[in-house]
Write a protein that binds this DNA or RNA. Structure first.
Length: 588
RNA sequence: GGGGUCGUAGUUCAGCUGGUUAGAACGCCGGCCUGUCACGCCGGAGGUCGCGAGUUCGAGUCUCGUCGGCCCCGCCA
């Protein structure tokens, strides 16, 4: 090893050199990316986070011997003058492609075993292997770009919120288990035998108490933990942009978040219009069959109950008579498929849990065709066509049910058909607020009312007197932020009155006793002068994944876990010794 | 908890209705090569077909179980 070269400092990164550096003596340090050994001349591409630079070794037998010993992923220091490449040897594919470094000194700083997969390019590798050797995966352009984007977005968030007077404040990670919501990760206490901390599902109560504490505007980029089953967009630990504001209503929260999202989107060079459109939960559910509608395209679900109210088709007539609805979805250009294809759509709907799906279309001569032509009659179906107004080549799908049942089904079909029909403009950014969520919903499994958002959410004042009489009809001051059909955040204006908070707990069948035990400290805090306040939590991982165009949040996290919540690199979770368990009072 | 899908060389994959010695590309190792940048040419090594049973004269291939990756439902205030 060449001690002298190792002792020198890095003068430039591997993405930095340009023609104006020609003549300068430089030292680069980085990983051996690729070697092209031509015998009398050896080209080596050196890589770091910033880019790639070609260095060339020739003429000197000792240097050629050292360069010949290099292998992929060795870490090296290389010194020499920057030279301009001749016209024929320019490489326009890399940023540093107009120059190269003529090697005068090489030091091998670290050798590397042959990597289990090729780091030198984006050749496909199984995710299992990428996770096992995450440090190698992080060297590849895809992950490097994603982690870099995540950093820039995180900084944009900090800058935006700082500029608006928010303070970044930390809250405890060793905290108290609260009822409702997701399963907690528990941490046994050594000093308090038999007692447990919980890792936070979110800093909800602490941030509200910060408002009671007069902090006025708080944010935190914070890890949250939920012990539930995983998905492409769900990890056991994930990061929230947590925000809370005092003396505000919805408009103030929306404004801050809209400016925040503008700053975030600027990181990928996109301008977004504000304010974001708002639609109520009820509108979203009726029109798009989802509380997180993808508004990059319209294709709304329509109500065609009138066509069947008095018709001969008993199934639909009975549903309408029973207070349900018959809904229609027009799929543009989908009307010219073979019958077998239409049957497949019906099968698909049934797989989604539908009792059935009806299709209607018009033959080129205008004649109505439908899977229920005989049963429902031409008159009713003609009325459907009048109401839903499909174009000549369109397909109309019908479903019926109670409540949002039919629109939810057609909403799912809407997403699939739009995707398949190429109706989704991937370049569009559709951000929207969904507001006026129900405060509570009936849980069949628990046989009680549960909060739809969380139990600290304020009901809308005009609905508050119905809380006991008709709790299901009470709307909340809760809102979700939706991006292209993905929920990327949710929040609410909170209850700042201890009396009202206690009333909500009673409705949720949380006894006074339990409420005191679980968050008595919080109820107490509310009694010492609480400003009206509200906030939101945004899913940082989801936002970065969507902006990076990645299908899974794993691809924007440095060290994610598998669907089985295992870290393949470190091997957690793992067994621990008896002694450790004993100290924690978990084993005799 | 349930359903689907994948598992063959270091990697990504091929391997037909079960049949002789399981292949390709990239990578790796050795040799040659003074302007490459997907360097080229010559040669070579490399396999518990995830694991375990079973069916069969014979299993990478069929059956059952099991483990692991991924996707979905439930779950995720």
């Amino acid at each position: 090893m060449n001690e002298q070269a190792e002792a020198t400092r890095r003068t430039h990164t591997c993405g930095e050199l340009r023609p104006h550096h020609v003549g300068a003596e430089v030292t680069l340090m980085g990983w051996v990316h690729k070697i092209r050994d031509l015998g009398g001349v050896i080209f080596v591409d050196i890589r770091d986070r910033h880019g790639l630079t070609q260095v060339v070794t020739r003429d000197d037998a000792d240097l050629l011997e050292v360069a010949g010993r290099l292998r992929a992923e060795f870490v090296v220091a290389v010194s020499g003058p920057v030279e301009r490449r001749s016209e024929e040897t320019l490489n326009p594919k890399i940023d540093t492609g107009e120059v190269e470094v003529a090697v005068r000194r090489i030091a091998i700083l670290s050798q590397a075993r042959t990597p289990p997969f090729q780091v030198d390019e984006d050749t496909p590798v199984s995710e299992e292997l990428r996770l096992r050797y995450r440090y190698l995966d992080l060297r590849r352009p895809r992950m490097r770009g994603n982690i870099g984007l995540r950093h820039r977005i995180t900084m944009a968030v900090r800058n935006s919120l700082d500029a608006e007077g928010f303070w970044e404040i930390e809250t405890p990670m060793l905290t108290k288990s609260t009822p409702e919501g997701a399963r907690d990760y528990l941490v046994p206490s050594r000093l308090q035998a038999g007692q447990f901390y919980a890792l936070p599902q979110s800093p909800q109560i602490f941030k509200q108490i910060l408002m009671v504490g007069g902090m006025d505007r708080y944010f935190q980029i914070v890890k949250c933990f939920r012990d539930e089953d995983l998905r492409a967009d769900r990890q056991p630990e994930f990061t929230q942009i947590d925000i809370e504001m005092s003396f505000v209503d919805e408009d103030a929260v929306f404004g801050a978040v809209e400016r925040l999202m503008q700053a975030v989107f600027r990181q990928i060079g996109k301008e977004v219009d504000v304010p974001f459109p708002r639609l109520t939960y009820d509108d979203a559910m009726r029109r798009y069959g989802s509380d997180k509608p993808d508004l990059r395209f319209d294709m709304p679900v329509q109500n065609v109950s009138d066509a069947f109210r008095d018709g001969q088709f008993k199934v639909f007539r009975d549903i309408v008579a029973g207070g349900g609805s018959v809904n229609a979805l027009v799929a543009p250009g989908a009307g010219r498929q073979a019958r077998a294809q239409l049957d497949k759509l019906v099968d698909e709907a049934i797989e989604l849990g539908a009792k059935g799906l009806v299709w209607v279309r018009q033959a080129p001569d205008g004649a109505i065709q439908s899977s229920i032509l005989k049963a429902a009659g031409e008159e009713a179906l003609t009325r459907v066509v009048e109401l839903a107004a499909p174009g000549p080549d369109d397909l109309t799908l019908l479903a019926a049910g109670q409540g949002y049942e039919a629109s939810v089904l057609l909403g799912q079909m809407r997403l699939r058909l739009a995707q398949r029909g190429g109706l989704v403009d991937e370049s569009r950014t559709a951000l929207s607020w969904v507001v006026d969520f129900p405060l509570m919903e009936w849980s069949a499994t628990e046989q009680r009312l549960v909060s739809m958002h969380h139990p600290f959410t304020s009901p809308r004042p005009e609905d508050a007197d119905r809380l006991e009489a008709d709790p299901g009809a009470v709307r909340a001051r809760a809102y979700d932020l939706v991006l292209n059909g993905n929920e990327i955040g949710g929040g609410s204006i909170r209850i700042h009155d201890a009396e009202l908070q206690a009333r909500i707990f009673r409705l949720l069948q949380i006894s006074d006793e339990e409420a005191r035990a679980r968050f008595g400290f919080f109820l107490e805090a509310l009694q010492y002068g609480t400003p009206p306040h509200g906030g939101i939590a945004l899913g940082l991982d989801r936002i970065v994944a969507l902006l990076a165009g990645e299908p899974s949040i794993r691809d924007v996290m440095a060290f994610p876990k598998t669907a089985g919540a295992v870290d393949l690199m470190s091997g957690s979770p793992s067994a621990v010794g008896r002694r450790q368990l004993r100290e924690l009072h978990l084993d005799r």
